[in-house]
């Protein structure tokens, strides 16, 4: 496995007086898909918020590509190469497809050739190019997901944080979305994902991380986690234990 591109060490933080992250520690190897699983309240989304500077940490350190990025602004993180795709539909429905993609470049440092990047993003998704003048709300669910990803590629990120990409999508669209994530990984982009649909996510992942009560319980090969009867019983439904047996 390659060197870690992202390391989080002993993160402590939460909302108000409530502590959600209790010393979360893990590393994400470069050019992999890493999936974080865990029960509700484990702190999965909170870890993402901490990495993307949306949650002020009380303790801990986040390193990205050898650089300390703890509590940096979102703009600085985007320019460093970290991109965050929050849960749910993340398009701006009233804006056109092209305007949605343009928004991906709001944080771009001056001197970046944004029009060229936008054209390159549209080249990757021909369906979006055809509908670039249409309102984003008129796209199908799968196309909307493509739009989110096209937008996130505008700053050529090295790490994409994806929170629950399959939420609200049909099984076919989930498959399409996972295929896009795999193709990004194959192009050298690191994907760190949270997914309730843990089994499907682990099937396409290289690494699995199990979080519980804000602490890292396990970091291992995704296949091994998928076949671990204890994990299966806890997070993937009893059937996993049966299939492992």
């Amino acid at each position: 496995m390659s060197d870690p591109i992202l390391s989080v060490h002993n993160l402590v933080g939460g909302y108000g007086k409530m502590t959600i992250l209790n010393g979360t520690t893990f590393a994400v190897p470069s050019a992999t898909i890493t999936t974080i699983i865990g029960p509700n309240g484990a702190g999965k989304s909170t870890v993402f918020k901490a990495i993307f500077g949306l949650l002020k940490l009380r303790e801990g350190k986040i390193s990205f590509a050898g650089r300390d990025v703890t509590n940096l602004s979102q703009r600085a993180l985007l320019n460093a190469g970290i991109c965050y795709v929050p849960q749910g539909r993340n398009i701006f429905p009233e804006l056109s497809v092209r305007h949605n993609i343009e928004l991906g470049g709001v944080a771009a440092d001056k001197g970046l050739d944004l029009p060229k990047r936008i054209e390159a993003a549209l080249d990757l998704f021909p369906a979006l190019r055809r509908k670039s003048a249409q309102q984003a709300s008129t796209l199908s669910g799968g196309e909307q997901k493509q739009l989110e990803i096209a937008r996130s590629l505008l700053l050529e990120p090295k790490l994409v944080l994806v929170d629950e990409p399959s939420i609200g999508l049909s099984p076919l669209m989930v498959q399409q979305t996972f295929d896009i994530l795999k193709s990004l990984r194959d192009r050298g982009v690191t994907i760190l994902m949270i997914e309730q649909n843990a089994r499907s996510a682990l099937e396409i992942s290289d690494i699995g991380i199990v979080l519980e009560l804000g602490q890292t319980r396990m970091v291992d090969d995704a296949r091994r986690i998928l076949n671990d009867p204890r994990i299966g019983q806890l997070f993937l439904g009893g059937a996993m234990e049966e299939s492992a047996a």
């Binding site: 703009r75 320019n79 804006l95 305007h99 709001v106 944080a107």
Partner: peptide, 23 residues
């Protein structure tokens, strides 16, 4: 301009806007 787009992003969903680096 990007400012106008950022305003609209802010109106539509502040968290989404923030995830795009909009202050």
């Amino acid at each position: 301009s990007p400012w106008g787009r950022a305003f609209m992003a802010l109106r539509e969903n502040p968290l989404r806007a923030q995830s795009l680096g909009i202050d």
